[in-house]
């Protein structure tokens, strides 16, 4: 089976006034058709930048991004436009991701119009799409400010689905939503996946949401993947000390479970990506770091069936 999305040693570097920021620093991963890959990490770890790089919203410095075998990392013009139909994105901010001066119908129709659909076909498709995400068709004539956050996120999902993409990059799609509405959107995403076989790259800082929705999980720290594996593997037998710390820190909505588990609180905070530590990026906060970690950067190694971690001491 060829993977739907293959990242090969992807780097995204930004030149800023303060110096070179290595936001994404050598990421490789595969995502199969119909799979949901969760991408977790704390703010500044590069997970959103990686999502944007896949969408080609930020320039890729080096590395390959293959969608169904074609490297799109440096594509331009019409070849890029053709590829964009296969990969779509759902954004974090339901208030910012829709043009406030466009009707909902116009926003949802946008990808279709750009793809050269005929007006009648566009109108029909928009009705279908709004139906799929559970919005009334009279929503078409209305403006985004007339809708709640959850409804707007549905509009964003309808827009992303318009051209039957193979992959949807979800950048923190439920972080801005209230608990009850968040569950609605997560369920909708799962229903759509079951119906259309679409794959998700699900970027989130919320471990419990990722645990619920993802088949596999990749953990990022300072621009690199420190551990990747199946959901159960990551939750039951985390190998990397950062993954362990992240799981220990995540609050659990069950007071009895919360009291019984041992809780090692990770000290310190994320180092600045302007001056990433030499060697293992995590060594400055790692409870098991040794001299070797300060000089030698660990690579991802297999730690079991389809699981990999980047640590010298596994």
């Amino acid at each position: 089976m060829t993977a739907l999305l293959t990242l090969n040693n992807v780097h995204v570097h930004f030149n800023t006034a303060a110096g070179l920021v290595r936001a994404v620093n050598g990421v490789s991963l595969d995502l199969g058709a119909g799979e949901t890959l969760g991408l977790v990490g704390e703010s500044g770890c590069g997970k959103s930048t990686l999502g944007k790089a896949i969408m080609r919203l930020v320039p890729v410095s080096t590395g390959e991004i293959r969608v169904e075998g074609t490297d799109i990392a440096q594509l331009q013009g019409s070849a890029l436009t053709a590829m964009r139909r296969k990969v779509q994105m759902i954004f974090q901010d339901p208030y910012g991701s829709l043009n406030p001066r466009s009707t909902v119908g116009r926003s949802v129709a946008q990808p279709l119009v750009l793809a050269g659909w005929k007006p009648e076909a566009v109108a029909e498709r928009v009705d279908t799409l709004l139906g799929w995400v559970g919005l009334p068709t009279d929503a078409k004539q209305r403006y985004p400010h007339e809708f709640s956050g959850g409804q707007r996120q549905r509009i964003g999902i309808a827009r992303a689905l318009a051209l039957n993409p193979r992959l949807i990059v979800c950048d923190e799609p439920v972080s801005a939503l209230d608990v009850s509405v968040r569950a609605q959107v997560i369920n909708l995403l799962e229903d759509l996946k079951a119906e259309f076989g679409v794959s998700y790259l699900f970027i989130s800082h919320d471990l419990s949401v990722v645990e619920h929705i993802a088949d596999r999980v990749a953990v990022m720290y300072l621009g690199t993947i420190v551990e990747i594996g199946s959901r159960d593997r990551i939750w039951r037998q985390p190998q990397h000390p950062y993954t362990k710390a992240l799981l220990a820190a995540a609050p659990i909505a069950d007071p009895k479970l919360a009291r019984t588990r041992t809780r090692t609180v990770l000290q310190g905070e994320l180092p600045s990506p302007l001056e990433p530590p030499a060697g293992c990026p995590f060594h400055s906060r790692c409870p098991i770091a040794q001299a070797r970690c300060k000089t030698e950067r660990p690579v991802l190694r297999a730690t079991g069936d389809s699981a990999q971690a980047a640590c010298h001491f596994i």
């Binding site: 969408m55 080609r56 919203l57 954004f91 910012g96 991701s97 829709l98 406030p100 946008q110 827009r159």
Partner: peptide, 13 residues
Amino acid sequence: DREFVQACRSMGM
């Protein structure tokens, strides 16, 4: 840099 502009860009506008 608002997300709706990024959405348009990601559609190839």
